[in-house]
Design a protein around this nucleic acid. Structure first.
Lengths: 187, 187, 187, 187
DNA sequence: AATGAATGAGACTTCATTCAT
DNA sequence: AATGAATGAAGTCTCATTCAT
């Protein structure tokens, strides 16, 4: 009668720990695909394979869902970047590491999610907290290798290059990226 | 007989020639306020003070409206930046002009609209054409004073600084912006 | 394919003047049957045989629908009572007319609707305006035959007797009603 | 063996004996504030500070909860009125006592609850039993001082005056209330 | 040319109730 | 005995779009 979803226990309610996490992941997937504007409880529930009613059981509303999703996204991105900077011992390698972070890592999905977040943050302070924390962590990671001002300016440059690489049909190449990093860091 | 759609002013026809423009302006206002996600025919029609039926009469649908609106937005922004660069005769002043463009001009509304556009462009090629043209015009304007590579990198830096200034609670000051421009342009 | 509702014009949208009125009537029917608590857009739309979407096209929301419905109900009740009082020329007959108004006319449906309205009015001033106007018209109608104070007290008595007759398993009879009217009017 | 539900305090059992009562009180509070229509298990549970699951554990469903709540309400109201009548020894004072009962005692909350109850009773016989008992007790209390017919008519008058006082922007004053009581009781 | 009327689809959310524990 | 987890049903409302006029 009803779809036996995944693991037995057909009669009665499933006890499904981890479901909240699954919904958040599904939300990020839908946001990346359809944008915040195209994200709905229905679609997320379908991707997460949970009943529609679960959505507002686990999240007070759409806003909480989006907030939690973008918090996870920003935290993970910052973790990754942090790890990358941490793995670089010497300053001369730091420039390389940054170049790689830009060129190799920034997926289309990540870029899309980033601008969706910025768009929300530009209008709603609750999301701005997420971007602030993220930016602070980025700068801190860069300060492992650069002075505070340089770290900040470099962070901004990374941001700008990433955007332009994402939106440009003929994006700047790796060599030019490196040149930009060198200039801003006086390396 | 009555196919003259350009100039005529036969009784009862074409009473409100600027209506299409008015709708586009209203659309930009609504997008800035409510985001693309919160933009609807109804709201735009209300702001533009035109009947709801006008919306799909003048625009084939939501997408055409958004496309036209962002086209106007990007064109105007590029015009302004172009004029600013054109007004600067010597390279030494160019750095100053760029700093001012960043610090004095980028309003909250413009920033919001910019990311709404990027968000669309990141997912839909039709909008990407708009951002591409915009970026090309920006670089061209900068090439009045800088070599092509520098112009491109500078353009990206401007982008990044603008974002960070918009999203940071304690944004970098004018002096630091100038320092960044100097570094990227080797000035 | 779609249900041909009432009168032709299957292709395209029906132009159906009077539809708003029909919805209001349907609302009163549903309220009488299921109570305000049990009234929903769906149910009213079903009774009125209009699409669900019509509900919020014609009424800004549930509240406007209820307000309009109860306004019509109160106006009609006041009209009827007014006509009854107007038809009675002499005071001696007025008592009789009032008795008849209570005993013969107050249907179960009317009584139910009245208390639904009172319940709303007790909590929301917007509905209280309806009851105030109704009460004012009742008193005015009674003042054709009685002095103002007597009219007011009589109005209250009518109210109370009606309630008790509706809620009592063994309601007071016509004779006792007449006795009550006589006492309150000193007739 | 374990059917002793009144006093036991075995470990882990019946830790919170007054919980059912607390829920009923909370229900009355919610009904008074939001109306029967706006009353839900969730809201009542929140006010009573009990888990949501308690609601259907202690009450078979919403109807039982409402029924129990209104039973308590009616009983308490009848108790109060009864006490007031009992405290009045002589008939001449009885009129005064009734006037006071109307003017001094009928709170907005009580009035609201009363009509919510009437609204239910008008449609559902199970609630009508509550109103019948209440009315019977009122009449009985009045019969301490008045003959049966007068008691009944007076009871109805009290009802009507209370309603009109609640719904009228400019309610009848104490003096007029007294006049009404005198007329209906031939005092 | 222009628009008011109309509606099906789908949005978010609340809820009473069930069930495993 | 008691409850947290869970969900299907239904609620209100918004909307893009269509069509007759």
């Amino acid at each position: 009668m009803t779809n036996d979803s995944s693991s037995g226990n057909v009669i009665g309610r499933n006890v499904d720990p981890g479901r909240r996490d699954r919904i958040i992941d599904a939300a990020l997937e839908v946001i990346a695909t359809q944008g915040v504007a195209g994200t709905s409880h229905r679609k997320v529930a379908a991707v997460a394979q949970v009943p529609l009613g679960s959505m507002t059981y686990y999240f007070s509303g759409m806003k909480e869902l989006l907030h939690d999703a973008f918090t996870r996204f920003a935290d993970q991105a910052a973790d990754t970047f942090d790890a990358r900077m941490q793995a670089t011992s010497r300053r001369v390698n730091a420039v390389d590491a940054v170049v790689k972070a830009i060129v190799e890592e920034r997926s289309q999905e990540n870029t899309v999610l980033t601008y969706e977040l910025y768009t929300l943050a530009a209008r709603d302070h609750d999301y701005q907290e997420i971007t602030e924390r993220w930016m602070a962590r980025s700068s801190a990671a860069l300060e492992r290798h650069f002075d505070p001002l340089t770290a900040r300016l470099l962070d901004a440059l990374i941001e700008g290059i990433t955007i332009h690489r994402a939106l440009d049909r003929d994006p700047v190449g790796k060599g030019d990226v490196e040149e930009a990093i060198r200039r801003i860091t006086n390396s």
